[in-house]
Each structure stands twice: as C-alpha cells, then as structure tokens.
C-alpha cells in the first residue's frame, strides 16, 4: 500500500504519527507521549495537535475508533504505518549520508 504522497513529515507530524504505533491514543495521551519521548524538546500546542489529527484523518493515516464525551480515540491505519516507515527510511538515509560525509 502506498504511503503519504505529500512530502516529508514535520517533526511534530512524525512524533504524532509515531505515538499511534503501539496502541490507540486520545489527544492528551499524544501530548504526554511526545513530551516524554522527546524529553520536552518537541512541544505540541493544542491547535497543532487537533489540526494534525484532522489532517491525518483526512489523509487516511489514522482512523477514529471511539468517542466518549469529548474524548476521541484514534488508531493508525495500514497507510499510516506505511507512511511512517517511508519517513523513517528517509530520515535513516539522511542520517547515513550525514555520517558518511562526516567520516
């Protein structure tokens, strides 16, 4: 299945998509995950988070699985997983190129 076709992911996009790899997530859990994973380096504002969630949903990278009051839970789709893998490959190639140039 083809992944995302709209260019590379930005850092917040990358971490938000990464947060879904292990389990389904809701908004606050994503913020906590990113905060913890990046040791506070990447901060997610609420506007950014909900815009990204809506964008990923539109692009079919994640899907809403439950709504409890204001709490919406999402899970990653196969397409989202593929997109993340492609981005990871791209970043790996970038890092390898950088290391090669440095050595």
């Amino acid at each position: 299945m083809a992944g995302r076709e709209k260019g590379p992911l930005t850092e917040p996009m990358y971490y938000v998509l990464m947060s879904f790899l292990d389990r389904e997530m809701c908004g606050t859990q994503i913020t906590e995950f990113v905060e913890k994973k990046t040791a506070g380096r990447v901060k997610l504002g609420p506007g950014t988070l909900y815009t990204l969630l809506a964008k990923f949903q539109d692009e079919g990278l994640i899907a809403e699985i439950s709504v409890e009051g204001r709490k919406r839970t999402y899970q990653i789709t196969d397409r989202g997983r593929e997109s993340f893998r492609e981005e990871l490959e791209r970043l790996r190639a970038c890092v390898n190129d950088g290391l090669e140039a440095l050595n």
Binding site: T10, P12, M13, L44, G45, P46, G47, T48, T51, L52
Partner: peptide, 10 residues
C-alpha cells in the same frame, strides 16, 4: 506552549 507550535500545522 503556543496554540500552534508548528507553523506547518497553522
């Protein structure tokens, strides 16, 4: 944090 921390998302 800012409402939008990522200019791309804004």
């Amino acid at each position: 944090p800012e409402l939008y921390t990522d200019p791309q998302s804004l």
